[in-house]
Amino acid sequence: MADVVVFDAMPSSAVLYARALVPRSRPAVAAGLPERTVTLLHYRSTAAELARYDAVCGFGLTDALPASWLHVLTFPLQLTLMTAPDFPLAPTGMVHVSNTMVQHRPTLITEAPELSVRAERLRPHRRGVLVDLVGEARLGGEPVWEGRSTYLSRAATLPGEAEAEASEPDADAELRTAGLWRLPADLGRRYAAVSGDVNPIHLNPLAAKAFGFPRTIVHGMWSHARVLAALQPRLPEAYEVAAQFTKPVLLPSTLRYAVAATGSGFAARLTDRSGEKVHLRLGLTVR
């Protein structure tokens, strides 16, 4: 039975995370996902919150909202779904492995899109179980933005054959270094403050250790946003962008940003300083 949860004000990520930290039993993974859509009827961003987000991610403050900001706005709706008692995977410790966004047209700061999120495609992975949280932003009934966040739960298993790893979007492109980014130790806390994603693995070294990371790691969506910010002046009105978070970025660190214009858009990569360890691959296609 499909159900719909409707908010008319943004739920608090911090409260939802607190709920997630309480241990409790969950339904069996094999029972599947609850059929539910979580909707926020309208949300108008303020210039002040957008400016803080832009400053942390490297965007200039423009009337057009960054696609990654719309992801930030849908994140509390994702958490609402994932912290519900009938959600089969534990949200704490889940890893964001890939993200795809489609911008049909820019959403302006003066507009108040309707935002909704649902979960789908629960499937086995060689290291656990994958699930997609699918978001949508609509204006006047028309979709203007879609986002698909794929999360890996390493704590769960599901019988069946794991799907093939996604191909490398930049496999054929000749990428050139266009940046050396120094990420400060407190970047996880800074991004948490502007995005509301207060997952402890980004905030506190001890919490990060508890989930198997030697130090705090930066949010995948910061890395993704930072690359979009580097491309901001060249972004088309409508595009699709796919990012794979191949290895977590420990803080502090220095990242090498490499990019190339392709026939259809851009390919980019974030690696460690030497260029050997790949943290993020990104492909952007004009629509």
Binding site: A47, L50, A51, R52, G60, L61, T62, D63
Partner: peptide
């Protein structure tokens, strides 16, 4: 209205 905007943001706009 532009309390959060920098010179760079404004000139770019």
């Amino acid at each position: 209205a532009y309390a959060a905007a920098t010179n760079l943001d404004l000139l770019t706009a």
